[in-house]
């Protein structure tokens, strides 16, 4: 049916748009959490560990995002030049990054609980629709 293909297209666009809006902040969170887990890490290792966790991310997304997080004071970076091997840029969390991550994870947990409640119909009485 022609109508169904137009519907699919529109749905696809809507999902893409939503993904674009929500993904950026989500990726930031994933990167900060990844650095927190590793204490000190570098781009390639982060990419590998994020991919192992099921998060597909391209180099073209990762590095600009890391640069921004450094500029915003969430991450600190230093070049390390080992005696053997090649130089690497290492990232660590700043106090600000750590506090930011803690706060935002708390908020996210709260939002998720709220969404669960909405989906399960537990808040039916006083619901007001934001959209």
């Amino acid at each position: 049916m022609p109508e169904s293909s137009a519907f699919d297209e529109e749905l696809g666009r809507a999902i893409d748009k939503w993904r674009g809006q929500s993904r950026k902040g989500f990726l930031e969170l994933c990167l900060l959490a990844c650095v927190r887990g590793a204490l000190k890490t570098y781009g390639f290792a982060m990419l590998e560990s994020l991919r192992r966790s099921g998060l597909e991310l391209s180099e073209g997304t990762l590095y600009p995002l890391l640069t921004r997080l450094v500029r915003e004071g969430m991450l600190a970076s230093t070049w390390d030049m080992p005696e053997e091997g090649h130089p690497r840029k290492y990232y660590t969390l700043t106090l600000m990054g750590l506090s930011f991550l803690d706060e935002v994870l708390k908020e996210r947990l709260k939002d998720e609980k709220a969404l669960d409640a909405i989906l399960s119909g537990r808040c039916a009485n006083e619901e007001d629709n934001r959209d």
Partner: peptide, 17 residues
């Protein structure tokens, strides 16, 4: 320079892995 070096380093890591 910083970005280019980081990609250079990334490629070195990729080649090793």
């Amino acid at each position: 320079d910083d970005i280019v070096l980081e990609f250079d380093s990334h490629l070195n890591d990729a080649r090793e892995s």
